[in-house]
Amino acid sequence: MTQPRTCYVDISRYDPERGDQYPTMQRVQVPYDDSTSVLDVLQYVKEQVDSSLSYRWSCRMAICGSCGVMVNGIPKLGCKDFVRDYVAHKGVGRDHAANDAPALTIEPLAHFTGERDLVVNMDEFLTHLEAVKPYIIDPASRPNNPSAATHSQTPAQLARYQQFANCINCGLCYAACPQFGLNPEFVGPAAIALAHRYNLDSRDHGKHERMQVLNTHDGVWSCTFVGFCSDVCPKGVDPAAAVNQGKVESAKSMLIQLFKGSSIGDSRS
């Protein structure tokens, strides 16, 4: 067996119960190999170095959306981000243990309220998701009807919304979004993508209701189209595309409303 390689990582620590006013960095030396993820690093620290480190995780396979953190300032899923990609940047073969400059800095997701260490408050994010009525709205649907048939939906119809249905609610796009950073009321990329997912679903009839949320100042129009949300999305959802298409839809529905002479969704305008 070869000696395991090691590197240094800085981990943001914060526990208000212990009187911490602000986060501080804890530097730890950790072993790694080609398959070591950022989440593995945190597990190592918790189990071998300091069991009081708090962070969220479960699936360790990039599907549950629990483990979002900032790594060197960029929002990442801890379980799908690998140490190999950071140490490589610093030049292959150099022994990082020799100088203790950290290869990685791990911090809680930006723009969310920190609770403790790497755990952030997710409630505000979930409230935004709920606000867009993310479910099939179909006045004709009858619940629990065993004889009911499935709707027809062709692969092409499915393909229209499928990408937007792949969101794992990890929140990375909110940590990337400068507008959400300035205005936490902004419903944000994932919620808009989710609204779009249902709006594009051939089984749904709820677009009008959802557009009332998206039309507002805190809806699609808050976005200044930076596009960083799509860059950081670990699931290829492309929320920026959803926001953009949402703006087109929103403009359309505003025009229609204008012709009809009724007020649009934003009560403040």
């Binding site: 969220r56 479960s58 699936c59 396979m61 549950c64 629990s66 794992i168 609610n169």
Partner: peptide, 10 residues
């Protein structure tokens, strides 16, 4: 955990 983190997700 938040419901959508449950292991059914996998």
């Amino acid at each position: 955990v938040y419901p959508m983190r449950s292991h059914t997700v996998a």
